[in-house]
Design a protein around this nucleic acid. Structure first.
Lengths: 226, 226
DNA sequence: TAGATTGTTAATCGATTAACAATC
DNA sequence: TAGATTGTTAATCGATTAACAATC
C-alpha cells in the first residue's frame, strides 16, 4: 500500500496539491535526516529560532544543496529568504523518522554489549524502549534490568506472541544470530538490528540493519596503515 | 608521502611492473573488504581451499563484479578459470586492512558502552587492544579491567605521552567528546573512533570514524513507519 | 524595493554493473 | 582442448552539487 497522501500531508499546504510522485528515499538521505535532527535538538536547546540550509549544512558537514534536496523529498519546510523554523523542522523530521511514537524492542543477548544497549540513554530519548530481554545463560536468567526480567531464550516465542514488539535487537554470539533472526521473522517482527558480525538471511519484508563494531576499526587501520 | 610501492608490492609479481596509478580507495570498498575478510575466515574454518568471486559475492550480498573490482585496486589475487585461494586472499586482505599488526587503543569513558567495547572479543581477534582506560568518575578510578587500570581523565595527557597509542576510542557523554578529541589530536593520535552522537571537529590529518547507535534505529523506524 | 534563501532542475561526479578478452 | 573464471573496460545507474528562478 503506497501512501501518496503522506507526503502532501506533510507539506501542510492549505490547498489540495497534485499528489507528488513518491520517490524512493535512499538510506543516505535517511541517515542524514538523523544528523539534521540531532543538530536541531541542539539548536532548540540553545534557543535558536531559525536556521538556513547553509548553516545547518555547515554544522552537519554536508552542502546546503544536500540539505535542501533531502528535505524536498518530504515537503516544503522552509521560507524563501528566511530559512527554516528550528522547532517546525525538528518536528517535521521527528515525524518523518517515526520518532513521534513509542517503539518497543526485544533484546537478545544480555552480555556486556546487550547491557550497554539496554541502558543506552539515547534510545529512550528517541522513543525506543526495551520491553523484553532474553539470554541462554542460566546465571543471568531471573535477574532484572530496571523492571525487565531476563528470560530464557526458549520462552521468547511465547512471550513475543503474548506481547509483541516492533523491533528485535540481536546482541548474541555470532552462532546464535541466525536463530534469533528466524524467530523474529516467525513472530512477524519487521525491524531487526543486528550487532553480530554475520550476514543474516531474512525475507525482504523484514528490515535488517547491521552494526558491525569491527568494520569501523578496520577502516581506521586501513587508512592508518598507508 | 604517497607510497606507490605498496600496491605493486602487494601484487607479489616476480618481475618489476609499471608502478600502478594509485587510485583513491573509497570507504565503500574498504567496508566491503572487511566483509570479505570475515567470510574468508569462516571459509577457512570450514576448510574451503578455493572460492570464486561469484560465490564470495553471494555470501556477502554483493555482485561478483563488485568483488573483483574491489580486489583489483590492490592486486591480482585470483587465477583465471579457478578463482581465489581462500588462505591467500584472506592473508592479502589482512595486509590491506592492516590487521597483520597489533594496534593499541585508549578508551575514554568507562560506562556500560566503554565496558562492552573493552571486553568485545572481536577487537582482540583483529589485533586491536585497549592499553589505557580513562574516566572522570571517582568511583571507577583505580579499578582494573583485566590488567588495565582505570585512570582519571586528567592523567591522560601524561600517560599517552609516556605510552602512546594508535587509536583513541570515545565512549564518553556527549559534552566531553570534543575535549577528548582535542586531547587525542594534541597527542598526535591519528585514528579516532567516536561513539558520542556529536559532530566532532578534528584536523584533516586525523582519521575520524563515527558510530552512532541511534542512527541505525532511526533508519529502522523510518521504514517501519511507512 | 533589495537582499536573502528556498525548492528544483540540470550538470557533474562517483560508484556499480555488464560484458568480454585474457588465460588458467 | 573446452569450460571456467579472472581482471578490466565501457556503460549504466544513482547520488551530489551548482545554478537559478521563485519568492519571502
Amino acid at each position: 500500500m503506497q501512501r501518496k497522501v503522506t507526503s502532501s500531508r506533510l507539506r501542510g499546504g492549505n490547498r489540495a496539491m497534485a499528489a507528488p510522485v513518491i520517490e524512493k528515499i535512499s538510506e543516505f538521505t535517511v541517515r542524514r535526516l538523523s544528523t539534521y535532527y540531532r543538530i536541531l535538538l541542539d539548536l532548540e536547546q540553545k534557543a535558536a529560532t531559525t536556521i538556513s540550509s547553509a548553516r545547518l549544512a555547515e554544522l552537519c558537514g554536508v552542502t546546503s544543496a544536500q540539505v535542501r534536496k533531502d528535505l524536498s523529498y518530504f515537503g516544503n519546510f522552509g521560507t524563501r529568504g528566511l530559512g527554516y523554523q528550528v522547532d517546525e523542522l525538528k518536528g517535521a523530521i521527528e515525524n518523518i523518522l517515526g520518532l513521534n511514537k513509542r517503539w518497543t524492542m526485544a533484546l537478545f543477548g544480555a552480555g556486556s554489549l546487550g547491557h550497554a544497549l539496554f541502558f543506552h540513554q539515547g534510545f529512550r530519548e528517541d522513543g525506543f524502549f526495551f520491553t523484553h530481554v532474553f539470554d541462554t545463560d542460566g546465571s543471568k536468567i531471573g535477574h532484572k534490568w530496571e523492571d525487565v526480567e531476563i528470560r530464557p531464550f526458549g520462552e521468547a516465542k511465547a512471550v513475543l506472541k503474548a506481547d509483541p514488539v516492533d523491533i528485535g535487537v540481536i546482541a548474541t554470539p555470532v552462532q546464535s544470530a541466525q536463530d534469533v533472526a528466524n524467530l523474529l521473522v516467525e513472530r512477524g517482527v519487521h525491524g531487526i538490528l543486528n550487532f553480530a558480525p554475520r550476514q543474516l538471511v531474512v525475507p525482504k519484508e523484514a528490515r535488517l540493519r547491521n552494526v558491525n563494531l569491527a568494520v569501523a576499526l578496520e577502516s581506521l587501520s586501513f587508512f592508518l596503515s598507508r
